[in-house]
């Protein structure tokens, strides 16, 4: 009888119910600003997909405490979920996607430190690729540093676009431009890095290959 009940539950769980009532997890993390200062009173809610086109946003909400920390005790989402910090009068939106068992093990899901940016914190960086040597093939290009992206993706399977040319970055920092260039004749791949100093203005950097 118990086996039948369990099987029935398992079947029903796959039939469009957003949460697994038999598994309780804790999602925690810390929210800071662009200068690593804790952000209290940041409101977020969980968006959980289920079924063909179901999406629940009303069941789980949280607010950061005085240290910028938050903690949610919840039934584990059956399918993918995301933690959403909506845009408000001060900060740009932040979507933490990939909250799924394939990306987190155990019952404690630690999202780490999440950074929220104000629009006034940011300048744009544009990379212009200038192919001087026709045999040079740009295979990968990435800027690292304090960079704003609305989507904080926990999907470990997602590698992202190998070549990104436009960024919104925090002012007053030194970013690192990492890129890979392949010689079409020799097939040799070179990995290079270039420091980019960001001040108060937008930056356009020409990368000569």
């Amino acid at each position: 009888m118990r086996l039948l009940s369990g099987l029935l539950l398992l079947f029903l769980a796959g039939c469009g119910i957003p949460y697994d009532g038999e598994t309780i997890i804790n999602i925690e993390g810390r929210v800071v600003d662009a200068y690593n200062q804790p952000l209290p009173n940041q409101r977020a809610y969980l968006g959980a997909s289920y079924g063909d086109d179901g999406y629940d946003t009303a069941t789980y909400k949280t607010v950061t405490d005085g240290q910028g920390a938050f903690r949610l005790t919840l039934f584990r989402p059956n399918e993918g979920a995301e933690l959403i910090f909506e845009e408000n009068s001060t900060y740009l939106p932040l979507f933490c996607t990939g909250l799924h068992t394939s990306n987190f093990s155990g019952l404690q899901w630690n999202l780490g430190t999440l950074v929220r940016y104000k629009a006034t914190d940011l300048v744009s960086v544009t990379i212009v690729v200038n192919t001087v040597n026709p045999n040079s093939i740009l295979e990968q290009l990435k800027l690292t540093g304090m960079i704003y992206t609305p989507n904080y993706d926990f999907n470990t399977l997602t590698t992202g676009d190998p070549i990104s040319l436009d960024y919104q970055v925090r002012k007053n920092q030194t970013c690192t431009l990492q890129y890979k260039v392949k010689n079409g004749l020799t097939q040799q791949v070179s990995e290079l890095t270039v420091p980019l100093v960001i001040a108060e203005s937008n930056v356009t950097y020409t990368l000569n290959l």
Partner: peptide, 21 residues
């Protein structure tokens, strides 16, 4: 043996289920 259903409202969407004894 009980089936416990968690709903958004009294007659609304089922959000989670549990089995109890």
């Amino acid at each position: 043996q009980s089936r416990i259903t968690y709903r958004a409202t009294r007659s609304g969407t089922t959000l989670a289920r549990q089995s109890w004894e």
